[in-house]
């Protein structure tokens, strides 16, 4: 039940956090803590120091800039689920947030934490891919914005460099219907497979999480759909549409099954956006 001992630093502001991170390469950032703390309790992670950014006002807040929805990295899942601005600008976000953990987890866990941790079974990456989100990353040396297509690199792997913090998630205003469908692991409630779909004037986008090492766009489904969201086309575009080759396989769900589920969930999500 006890983690290994660590030094605790409560950052007073973002610059303070960035400086401490630069000074303590072994330190971990503590935001919602819902991935980190359980891992530390099982002593599977033993960072020498934690930099607590969970109370930083600079990372909080939901605002808009023109047609851009800007989420502070410290925005919680519950805020995404219940906030009116988010519902107006990117209703796909609450459609995903309702699937994250449980009410208590949603009250603590943060969107920035999910983005930084890049758990292959996290929900948001699927929707963020379809929404064309980008992420503001800050370090003591400066800041940059990375688009979602370049950000998620692999299992727990992102474009984040040492000393960088995700500070904001930028989401262009959602221009059509979006939907997220999830088949969750009955024990952990993480996604075995999750599929987000978005039908905007620019076209239909579909992305999948949980099934592979990282979330990916299902371009073959997108191409097969084109702009034809008829029932028949959705069915034919999603059936056996996902190749099991690169997918994860475990005791609970084989790659073949995950591929099948991805097609089913894509169908269900697309039916909801037509």
């Amino acid at each position: 039940m006890y983690t290994t001992p660590f030094d605790y630093h409560r950052a007073v502001n973002l610059d303070d956090a960035l400086k401490m991170l630069a000074d303590n390469p072994d330190a971990k950032l503590l935001a919602g803590g819902h991935s980190l703390i359980p891992t530390m309790k099982l002593r599977l992670a033993s960072p020498s120091a934690l930099i607590d950014i969970s109370a930083l006002d600079e990372l909080r807040g939901i605002r808009t800039d023109g047609d851009m929805l800007i989420l502070g990295a410290g925005v919680t899942h519950a805020e995404l689920l219940y906030d009116k601005t988010v519902a107006e600008y990117a209703p796909l976000m609450p459609d995903m947030a309702r699937w994250v953990g449980d009410p208590m987890v949603r009250n603590r866990g943060t969107v920035g934490g999910v983005v930084a941790h890049a758990d292959p079974a996290a929900d948001y990456p699927a929707g963020l891919l379809t929404l064309g989100a980008s992420f503001k990353l800050k370090s003591a040396g400066g800041e940059r914005v990375v688009g979602v297509d370049d950000y998620f690199k692999g299992m727990f792997e992102t474009a984040l460099q040492e000393g960088e913090i995700v500070t904001e998630i930028h989401i262009p205003r959602q221009a059509g219907k979006g939907a997220y469908e999830k088949f969750r692991h009955p024990a952990s409630h993480y996604a075995i497979v999750g599929v987000a779909a978005l039908a905007s004037p620019e076209g239909v986008k579909v992305a999948m999480t949980g099934a592979g090492p990282k979330a990916v766009r299902l371009t073959q489904v997108e191409q097969a759909i084109g702009s034809d969201l008829s029932d028949e086309n959705i069915k034919s575009a999603t059936e056996n549409a996902v190749d099991a080759g690169s997918l994860l396989s475990d005791r609970f769900a084989s790659a073949e099954y995950r591929a099948h589920l991805a097609g089913v969930l894509a169908k269900r999500a697309l039916m909801r956006v037509k």
Binding site: H185, P186, A187, S188, R251, F252
Partner: peptide
């Protein structure tokens, strides 16, 4: 292989 509530489905 099912040593926690993450793998053992209650």
């Amino acid at each position: 292989l099912t040593g926690s509530f993450m793998e053992y489905s209650m």
